[in-house]
Design a protein around this nucleic acid. Sequence first.
DNA 1: GTGGTCTAGACCACC
DNA 2: GTGGTCTAGACCACC
Lengths: 131, 131, 131, 131
Amino acid sequence: MDFDSSQPIYKQIIDYYKKQIVRGELGPGDKILSQREYAEQARVNPNTVQRAYREMEALQMVETVRGQGTFIRVSEETQKRLKREMEESLLAYFVKEMKSLGYEQDEILGIVQRKLEAQGEDPEDDSIQKC
Amino acid sequence: MDFDSSQPIYKQIIDYYKKQIVRGELGPGDKILSQREYAEQARVNPNTVQRAYREMEALQMVETVRGQGTFIRVSEETQKRLKREMEESLLAYFVKEMKSLGYEQDEILGIVQRKLEAQGEDPEDDSIQKC
Amino acid sequence: MDFDSSQPIYKQIIDYYKKQIVRGELGPGDKILSQREYAEQARVNPNTVQRAYREMEALQMVETVRGQGTFIRVSEETQKRLKREMEESLLAYFVKEMKSLGYEQDEILGIVQRKLEAQGEDPEDDSIQKC
Amino acid sequence: MDFDSSQPIYKQIIDYYKKQIVRGELGPGDKILSQREYAEQARVNPNTVQRAYREMEALQMVETVRGQGTFIRVSEETQKRLKREMEESLLAYFVKEMKSLGYEQDEILGIVQRKLEAQGEDPEDDSIQKC
DNA sequence: GTGGTCTAGACCACC
DNA sequence: GTGGTCTAGACCACC
C-alpha cells in the first residue's frame, strides 16, 4: 500500500485490486476495505479512494452498496478475461519494446532466460523500474 | 512518427531518438531533423518539439549548433550504457509484473516462448499496448 | 416487492403504497403489513421500513395505532387528488422530456401510439426503466 | 444552465449535452466549453464540471485533448443509438407508470392526447415535474 | 458507519 | 490557456 509517482494514485489502487482478483486472492462476494478505512490506512484522501472505487465499479470489478460497503463482483469469465488481457498486453508491450531496442525474435528468449536465472540466485534484485 | 495518448508527445519523441541511437541507426555526428521540419512532418506543435529537443540536450543525447542544426552526440560508451539500462529496466518491469499476476519464475519462460512462436506465424499481431 | 437501486428503498416502499391507494386496491381502514412483517418479507432493514412508514404518516397516508398496526387513512378526496397529481406530473415530465429530445408536439402522440401497439403484442416488453 | 436539486449537478450537465447531441445541435468535432469556462458560466465548481466531462468521455460522447479542450466525438451510429435509447426508456417508464396508476392500455393514448391539446392552447403550462 | 456530492483551492503537465 | 490529480473538508442520504 505505498504508491510511486509514476502513475496517479487512483490508478495504482485499481491496479492493486485488479492483480488481487487476477491472482484469485479476492473473489466474488469478498468485501474490500471501506473507502474511509482505505484512505486512513494508505494515508490518502478519501476522494482519491472514491475515484478509484468508482472507476472499479464502471469496470465491473466491484459493486458498491451504500451504507454497507464495496464488494468484489466479477464473474469467473471476467476474472479470466482480466488475466488474459493483462498478460497479453504485458507480453505484447515487452516484445515490442525489445524489438525496438534492436533485438531479434530469437534473442529475446535467451535474454529472458538469463534474467530469470540471475534472479533465481538473487531474487531480491528488482533493479530500476521502467514506466 | 505517430503518437498515442498514453504518454506525452515530447516523451515519445525522445523515446524515438533514444531507440534509434540504441539500435545504432543514429550515431555520433548524425544530423537529425530541425525542430521546424520535425514539427511540420509530424504535425505537432513546434513548442512540443522544442521541449523534446531541449530535454535531449539536457540528457546529452544531442547538441544543437546555431545555424547548422541538431546533431547526435553520444559516445559509443553512452550508447552501450543506454542500451543496457533500457533493456534491464524493461526486463525487470516485465518479470515483476508477470509475478504480480501470479506466475512463478518457471512459468514465465514458457509463456514468452509461446508468445514468440505465435508472433513468428503472425508477426503483425501487435495487440494492445501496455503502459 | 423487489427494489432497484435507482432510488432509495424507503421511497420505493412509499411509492408502492401510493400506487396501491391510487388504484383503489387499498382504501381507508385497510390494515397494511406491520413494519416487522414487511421487513422480513421484503428482506430489507427494519430501519428502512420504519423510515418509510414514518414518512407515510407525515404524508397523512397511514395512521399507526399502538398495539394494533398500521392502517390506511386517506379520504376519497385525497385518493383522487393523489391520482390527479401523480398523473399530471408524470404527463408533464413525459411531454417535456420528449420535447427536449427534439420531438414536436404532433409527433409525440404517434410515438406513444406505436409504443402501445408494440406492447399490445408483446406486453412483457418492459424495456429499460428511466429515472 | 441552471440546475435543480432532483439530480446531482454532474448528471444534469451530462444530460444537457446528451440532449444537445440527440437533437443534432452538437455534432462530431464541435468544441464544447472548456471546463473552466463552463464552471464560471454555470457557477459551479470546476471539479464538478470535470467529473461530468470525464464521464462523458467514458460514455464515448466526447474526446478530451489536453491543452486544447473537449470535443464532441459521436459517430452517427452513437447519435442515433442515444436517441433511440433515451426515447425508448422514457416511453417505457411513462407507460409502466401510467399502468401502475391503474390506467389500461387504451386509456393512455386518450390522456396524452388531451394533455397535448391542453398544452397546445397554453404551451407554457409546465406544471409540476416528477422525478 | 457507509458511500455520494460538492466546494475551494493547490500544483502539475501539456500545448 | 487547457485539462489532470490531489487534498481538505462540509454536508447529505442511507442503513
